[in-house]
Write a protein that binds this DNA or RNA. Structure first.
Lengths: 247, 247
DNA sequence: CGAGCTTTTGAACGCAGTCAACAATTGTGG
DNA sequence: CCACAATTGTTGACTGCGTTCAAAAGCTCG
């Protein structure tokens, strides 16, 4: 059930539709969007801070990172994206990019011209609202990361990170038997949770020793989901996975 | 030149218009929005995490904070808002609030029903786009805070924070002669930049000793803006103050 | 003028960073 | 398929930025 097997538009539609049910007409408008599919190697910049892109990219396969550097060259990763996400959707309304986006493993990306997206958004306000909502969920995740990085210690922080990643992968069908692929180096993990790679290594060992996770290569196995959630103080509310207002 | 002297709608229109020039008709639509003005005391919750608000609030006077708590009760402030901002604009499309918003000093707030905003957004796509853009700038600020908190040390971090606050206040006319009011306790400052209040106190002293800032009560004076920017590694790009694409 | 909050100070401690070396794994070219 | 290079993961020792706790001093405001 690889995400890459679907057409780019279908992946996008399925995601938008799951929250914000679309009409047949709206769905067709999205299907009609021209998408240029491109393959990227690992560790390649897709767009850079300061760029003025004229297109957005839909992640179809692989994982990407949003990052920035300090003056001293320290890196902070502020977001990871899973298939179905649009890492630079913001660029539709913010002309200059304020962060860089890069692959962390080989990726397939679909590019859509801003022009085309704007046309669809103007004609179909509900599609615009659905895209808007996507960016609001991104922002909600940033807030949670701020809490996580600012106020939780490394062990809890890493547990929380793993919880979030697991849940987001589950949504796109990339988790089986509480096992998922995390093709990311400890250096990158460290830059995501704002610690050093050495410390990430030690925390991972502690988590393995405590039976919180098991690892086999890049595979991560979560034997006790409830426990991981507890250790990571994880509450998925902030991911806004359902349109909760309907309940 | 107090922001509070204008009508709520005018404050909002001026901000949206400065980036995204509006037509007379669009302006009139915004002027017609019913706004209920309410006064709040200091340190009062306006909305709480888990709420399902049916309205947004425009900050007219004072400062508000967006915050969350960890399981142990540690607080992280993830955003401060200045007059003209809409601290919970996200709630227009995310049914359940994933953070709390509180005043940090006595505030004047204008409440607008979601229903009314949605009507205006549907009828005027450019207004919707302008609001959308506002939420994207908020997200951009979250990203910068992640970099700041995650990868800069306390001194630089606080300098950066002061730079941002100064610039944002300047935009709404609340800075005179490089002096601004910061009616916020050191405990709150600490929760915003993710350190302890004790450390904030020491860093502030260091900054005063270095001549980076002067303080008189809650007033902060910046004698050398260029130097503060440098010490804080501050580049205002991420605030997206102009629609840079027009250049 | 006193209660309550905020700022300031000192001292001890600890989580995590840095540096450096080594081991394991992955990737690559012959 | 193997040898070698490069990357990634692991370990130990030392250091330090910042936390915590507790108490004193300074403000603010009824």
């Amino acid at each position: 059930m690889k995400a890459g097997l679907h057409s780019p538009q279908t992946l996008m539609i399925r995601k938008l539709d799951s929250i914000f049910p679309l009409s047949a007409e709206e769905r067709q408008a999205l299907q009609g969007l021209p998408v240029q599919v491109t393959l990227f190697k690992a560790d390649q910049d897709i767009v850079r801070i300061g760029d003025r892109p004229s297109q957005c990219c839909v992640l179809l396969e692989g994982f990407t990172q949003v990052y920035k550097l300090t003056a001293e060259g320290k890196r902070q990763i502020m977001a990871l994206h899973v298939p179905g996400d649009i890492p630079d959707l913001q660029s539709l309304h913010l002309k200059v990019l304020d962060n860089s986006v890069a692959t962390i493993c080989p990726c397939t990306l679909g590019f859509i011209q801003h022009e085309d997206m704007r046309r669809v958004c103007e004609r179909y306000p509900r599609i615009a609202a659905a895209f808007w909502r996507e960016t609001l969920v991104d922002a909600s995740i940033f807030r949670e990361w701020l809490l996580n990085i600012g106020r939780r210690e490394a062990y809890t922080r890493l547990a929380h990170f793993l919880c979030e990643f697991l849940v987001r992968l589950k949504v796109v069908g990339l988790v089986e038997d509480d096992t998922f692929d995390l093709p990311i180096t400890q250096v990158e993990l460290a830059d995501a949770i704002a610690t050093s790679n050495v410390h990430v290594n030690r925390v991972l060992q502690a988590m393995r020793a405590n039976g919180l996770i098991q690892t086999r290569g890049t595979q991560v196995i979560v034997p006790d989901w409830e426990r991981l959630k507890e250790e990571g103080e994880f509450d998925p509310l902030y991911l806004h996975l359902q349109q909760e207002g309907d309940a």
